[in-house]
Amino acid sequence: MRQDTLRHVYGWLLLTPAAILLVAFTHYPTVATFINSLFSKGNPIRPSRFVGFENYALMMEDPIFWKVLGNNAIFALGTIPTSIALAIVMALFVNSRLPGLGLVRMAYFTPTVLPMIAVANIWLFFYTPGIGLIDQILGLFGLPGHNWLGDPDTVMPAIIVMTIWKEAGFFMIFYLAALQNIPAELREAALLEGASRWTYFRRVLFPLLMPTTLFVLINAVLNSFKLVDHLFVLTKGGPDNASNLLLYYIFETAFSFFDTTYGATLTVVLLLLLAVFALVQFFLLDKRIHYR
């Protein structure tokens, strides 16, 4: 009996230090964010007061909110499928016996260990109009230069290309781990049956990699909402919010425009989006057992 009581005491005592910090920096701020979103922005003359869902009504009419939400969708759709396809190709390359394997794997993976800020610094010069590397190369062929980051039509593609470069090698790791767990006999059997390597990939490998693809996909979507560091260096969300993303807009609203209640309202939307994707992950990844 005493032993049984001790179990609860020890469990809670061991958990307490971590629990205090988790509550202070995850659970409490989540609740506080929601409560704050129900108040008006205060100023010296009129203090903040309860306004119900008024901030949400304002948000629905805020064209920038819809713009950044759309940009987040474009950013996710532009980066994730291509990164995943490249990651599979990279993993297949690295998993085969390749001359200079170590170097190839290093080349694919290195961008992953760089901070996004450094990546943006490097790529900024590629995109700089006139003197940038891309414009210089275009100039060699007599083609006109272009303000890649200053044109609303090209700024998202430019950022998407850079992000793919940074992310593909990271996703490759998960495919590499999955490929190493696929028995070699499968491949031998398929090739003995006269299947071409493409058929083997399409009919055997790709379906076997499906759980990995689901895992990578959901995590990539969650991550795409948190990836905004590059905007600080490349565009500041511009031109005219053409490259702005939700988390960056929250930062701007709270720390540049000092509107913390509207910042809280936007944060609630971000939290809801993350929650939806996390639930999708929970139920979809549950299914991966059936593939095994």
Partner: peptide
């Protein structure tokens, strides 16, 4: 934590 920058 970076999502809750305002409250944190």
């Amino acid at each position: 934590p970076e999502i809750l920058i305002v409250e944190n």
